[in-house]
Write a protein that binds this DNA or RNA. Structure first.
Lengths: 342, 342
DNA sequence: TTGTATGCGTTATCAA
DNA sequence: TTGATAACGCATACAA
């Protein structure tokens, strides 16, 4: 058996409650006994038992992380390593631990969340993604359980604390950037419309197009799981239009990489024949050839701030709902140029 | 307050212990009361409290995950998303939860492990990497705490359950593959020698070289954090030798991508002027141009088996030490060819 | 087959 | 400033 508070108490000749107070750094305790107790702890190599503490104090000092479906290809995205880093560092500041739940199906994930929450394993939850219709968000709201979403909640935006980029604005910026370069035929290549981020970026794209007085072409809007072979048809479809686009707004770097490859196979040069701008600016953006012009959304900060906000929420339930917008910047590299008007 | 075992007991007109037995699926209980209790649980929406259960049963049903330093660039490697998936699915089978600890420095990470372990937050620990001198491994061994390492332990291999590839063999295979293609000047580009995996791969490479009767050239062995600009000098150094290599064994896909870019800038064609073969076969291996010939090490299985083994170890402390070797396969793509003997 | 009582290692509420 | 003592929610040995 491990050494407990009682062992320490015995050695220090005090009551267990006194030891507990020393641990909690209770001010109403004499320097002398504090020192005595600390010495005993050191001697015995005492370490507090989190489980017992959690049970007694009804708080775990742990944050639950909800990942997207592990079956989903987005799970492979370096995005998650990076948010995780931010999340972890944010939690670390306040000495919170990280508890994870994943699952293959939505059902599995939901069960995992229920277990974490009702099982009292965590004090709060962070959703690492935002879907259009999300049972989990409703569930947490109903139970009034502290949670934060990374991304924009689809419903009840005003009532859910979330950390997000202004994806609408970012997409608009990006599209205007292409327009300024002289492009008029700009296509949008996005992921699943079930993800709020895709919706936002699509809307921003459309807004920019409209504001520029360009007519929206339905065929220019494509949604695909764009990795590997899958994306090929979509791109070929785009190129077989009578007026094929001269530029692409791609919703994710990994997708953009797939697009780049497809274009390469077709024999189109980037940026000469086609401009591409994408989002997230993960590590491979700068490692692709040509290096991707991409929107840096500061993924690390997304995670860091999410942890911070959740902890605030946990420690002060009256904390007002917050919406934290992490800034973004276009990182210009080599995939955008003026259109080839040949 | 949440609904507890007592509430259920009251409603079902039984003792709390009876409810507890129903939960535990104790066979010594009549079908009738079991049904009655289950109905009461359903009616009240009862969920067992994991914390209380953990305290009483001295087991948490949670696995602790130790990641490498989040400051480290390897953290960004898609490798981790994939092991995580495997780990998660393996744990899920036996209803274990995942608890994470990360940190920027080795010190932080070590503290995190101590807290997890001594704080009783987890029943066992999985190390997601293997370093040459690792305080954490010694610590866990001393305390006789169940743990599994993904990779090969540097010390006490016979006494630590681990899940690994035969990296020595894989590197040997790969080198022989290049030799068979006709290469005689083969360089090795690896990561930090503090990682056991690097050491193993280097040894395999050397073995193959020697067995083929080729003399080992010290200048052909390079260790670098090869991402981004950093790798350039190393590659340029290699190329400025009087007899530059015609092929490269690169210890990681991401590194290989960096190498590919550098070669591209220098104006060397792959595989015509230089063959490259790398390890891990993460998603970007097939998305690079040209697509990388890479060793698939079945990352998912690495994680899956690690979870399984740890759980076995936890549930049966007498479980013998195991060494699980996950098979590997060379996936031929487009970065290897016969040397250009021009 | 079921109920009673005790303990798991803390925190927290009273008294002293 | 400190010490008893009762929770916290569940598991389990022992009784019945």
């Amino acid at each position: 058996m491990a050494v407990t508070i009682k062992d320490v108490a015995k050695l220090a000749n005090v009551a267990p409650s006194t030891v507990s107070r020393v641990i909690a750094n209770n001010p109403r305790i004499s320097e002398k006994t504090k020192k005595k107790v600390k010495e005993a702890m050191r001697q015995l190599g005492y370490h507090p038992n989190f489980i017992a503490r959690s049970l007694a104090s009804q708080s775990t000092q742990a944050i639950g992380l909800v990942m997207p479906s592990s079956a989903d290809i987005v799970f492979q995205n370096p995005f998650f390593s990076t948010v995780l880093r931010g999340l972890s560092e944010g939690a670390h500041v306040k000495h919170y631990a990280l508890h994870m739940t994943t699952g293959k199906t939505d059902e599995e994930i939901f069960d995992g969340v229920m277990q974490m929450v009702q099982g009292g394993r965590v004090d709060g939850v962070i959703l690492l993604y935002s879907k259009v219709e999300d049972k989990i968000q409703s569930y947490l709201r109903e139970r009034n359980f502290p949670f934060v979403v990374i991304g924009k909640p689809f419903k009840n935006v005003e009532e859910i604390t979330h950390v997000d980029n202004d994806n609408f604005r970012a997409a608009k910026d990006v599209t205007e950037y292409l327009i300024k370069l002289g492009h008029q035929q700009i296509a949008f290549v996005g992921g699943s419309l079930n993800m709020v981020v895709t919706v936002e970026r699509l809307l921003g794209y459309e807004k920019a197009i409209r504001e520029a007085g360009i007519t929206l072409v339905n065929e220019y809007i494509v949604h695909e799981q764009f990795l590997r072979e899958g994306g090929q048809e979509a791109i070929r479809g785009l190129l077989s239009l009578e007026r094929p686009p001269t530029a692409l707004v791609v919703s994710d770097d990994l997708m953009a990489l797939g697009v780049l490859n497809t274009l390469n196979e077709i024999g189109l040069a980037v940026p000469e024949d086609m401009s591409i701008i994408s989002f997230n600016n993960v590590i491979i953006a700068e490692m692709s050839r040509p290096p991707l012009t991409s929107v840096d959304i500061n993924i690390f900060d997304l995670g860091f701030e999410a942890s911070r906000s959740l902890i605030q929420l946990i420690e002060n339930p009256k904390e007002p709902v917050k919406r934290i917008i992490i800034p973004h910047q276009i990182v210009e590299r080599s995939t955008c140029a003026a259109p080839n008007l040949g």
